[in-house]
């Protein structure tokens, strides 16, 4: 896998096959946490960190432990335990060594365990047979793409709150989905730029 290929994968995950806007993953926090830009980016950084780290841990676990043991069947269970353990460990380490970091994005950490993109990235990297380096780049790019999407969404929501002329039943999740649909349309303009999967 050459450096150019890695760059292509990175751009693809960021723009053309954005995990939030074209694979429709990580939608629950996308809707619940996109009211303010600062919250959205805080969650985004925490997601980038955790997704990249869990992909880097899950890859060797799958290829060096589960495959030789012929136990690929249980990889869902193993991955979900890894993710929960990594999040728990990070929380404890941050509390002890980086209290400043803890106060800035520590509150988002417990929520990440149930963010489906963490598991999705690990599953996709196995499904597509990526090697280790590619997996890490793919994980980082996907999480960065998700962060980009939720940041755009939150910025739109902040402006929308100022205008505030949304029909009653449409307020909250409804209008977020319509805006997300329009952003997804805009992102389709990138398609054809790079082709990966």
């Amino acid at each position: 896998m050459s450096a150019l290929n890695l760059l292509m994968i990175f751009i693809a995950t960021l723009l053309t096959s954005n995990i939030a806007l074209s694979y429709l993953l990580g939608m629950c926090p996308f809707i619940a946490l996109s009211k303010r830009l600062s919250t959205a980016t805080g969650m985004g950084y925490a997601v980038i960190f955790v997704v990249t780290l869990t992909a880097a841990i899950n890859w060797p676990i799958y290829h060096l432990v589960l495959v030789p043991l012929k136990a690929e069947l249980v990889y869902y269970v193993v991955f979900i335990i890894t993710i929960a353990a990594v999040v728990q460990l990070l929380e404890m380490l941050m509390e002890k060594f980086f209290p400043a970091l803890q106060s800035s994005f520590g509150i988002f950490l417990p929520l990440i365990t149930v963010n489906c993109i963490v598991l999705a990235v690990s599953l996709f990297m196995i499904l597509r047979d990526y090697n280790f380096i590619t997996s890490v780049v793919y994980a980082f790019g996907s999480a960065a793409g998700w962060t980009l999407a939720i940041a755009i969404m939150a910025a739109i929501n902040e402006k929308l709150a100022l205008v505030g002329d949304v029909p009653r039943g449409m307020k909250g999740p409804g209008i977020v989905m319509v805006s997300a649909g329009i952003i997804a349309l805009a992102f389709m303009g990138f398609s054809g730029m790079v082709v990966v999967q």
Binding site: L24, P167, G169, M170, P173, G174, I175, G181, A184, L185
Partner: peptide, 21 residues
């Protein structure tokens, strides 16, 4: 567009609008 991602957003948003109203 309905078969792709944006269509999903629009249809679900419409359903949310109707049921919530």
């Amino acid at each position: 567009i309905m078969a792709m991602a944006p269509g999903a957003f629009f249809v679900v948003a419409l359903f949310i609008w109707v049921t919530r109203t």
